[in-house]
């Protein structure tokens, strides 16, 4: 079984600051970490490897320094790592990112399962996983907290939803996005860490992926950030006080005065 885990380097959210003038993230001096949800994805893949045997490849798209994040996952026990790095990939929105990641998975050829974190803590879109599945034309399940591997070329996943847990049988190849409940990430092992230190990390650019340049990076992005701004503070606020009954009465009168339909 070949599992690909997609990870993203994000600024350590514990120390994030916003530049008051540009309204963008101050990245200088902020340490990058692997998106915490992606760490659960790595742990999920390694658990399958421990229990059923699997080859785990970790995939990321990013600048050359993203190789360090990949190296960290090799220290945890992943077998291989691929970095997608090319100037042509810069400025990608989620669609262009998914296009590029999906092309890499397709190039690997023999992938049975792709695992992604449910979302990245910087953009919080939760789009890349499902988009990749669409592009790869494979079934997918989101918000997965448990993965059981069956012998018959399928997996059983437990999805966390607002209403409860859904149990799905998913035919492989497939893609899942995972949540914290999948399991705390492990610590590295010394042997894996030593191997990771020396490991060659494959770097693929667009010459390896062979994508239409118009489908990657800024050119391939349907969305572009035009402006970033902080929301205006709301002007008037009314705070209701008194007993609950009294507050309800006040609220009712307020809504009535505001001509809310039906009141």
């Amino acid at each position: 079984m070949h599992i690909v885990v997609c990870i993203k380097q994000v600024p350590d959210t514990k120390n994030v600051r916003i530049d008051p003038d540009t309204h963008t993230l101050v990245r200088q001096g902020v340490e990058s970490i692997i998106n915490p949800f992606d760490m659960f994805a790595v742990e999920g893949a390694l658990k399958i490897k421990d229990e059923n045997g699997a080859r785990v490849t970790v995939l990321t798209m990013g600048p050359p320094q993203a190789a360090e994040a990949l190296r960290d996952t090799l220290g945890l026990g992943a077998d291989d790592a691929v970095l997608l790095s090319d100037r042509a990939f810069a400025g990608s929105d989620t669609w262009a990112t998914s296009t590029t990641l999906a092309a890499a998975v397709r190039k690997m050829g023999d992938v049975d399962l792709v695992i992604c974190g449910k979302q990245a803590v910087d953009g919080d879109t939760a789009q890349v996983g499902p988009e990749m599945a669409a592009l790869l034309d494979v079934p997918f399940a989101t918000f997965v907290k448990k993965i059981d591997v069956a012998r018959s070329g399928s997996i059983t996943v437990h999805r966390q939803t607002d209403e409860g847990t859904e149990v799905w049988k998913v035919q492989l190849p497939a893609l899942v996005t995972v949540i914290k409940e999948l399991g705390e990430p492990r610590v590295p092992s010394l042997r894996h860490k030593m191997r990771a230190k020396k490991a060659e990390i494959a770097v693929w650019g667009n010459s390896e992926l062979g994508l239409d340049p118009n489908s990657t990076g800024l050119c391939g992005s349907f969305t572009q950030v035009v402006r970033v701004f902080s929301p205006q503070r709301r002007g008037s606020r009314v705070q209701l006080e008194g007993s609950i009954e009294n507050q309800v009465e006040q609220l009712f009168q307020y809504l009535k005065k505001a001509r809310v339909p039906g009141l």
């Binding site: 610590v187 590295p188 010394l190 860490k193 030593m194 230190k197």
Partner: peptide, 19 residues
């Protein structure tokens, strides 16, 4: 050595996060 630093790094991580 590199390996000795790795041992320190790893055990420090375990001490901080797990112990």
């Amino acid at each position: 050595t590199e390996e000795q630093k790795m041992i320190q790094e790893l055990t420090e991580q375990i001490a901080r996060e797990k112990i």
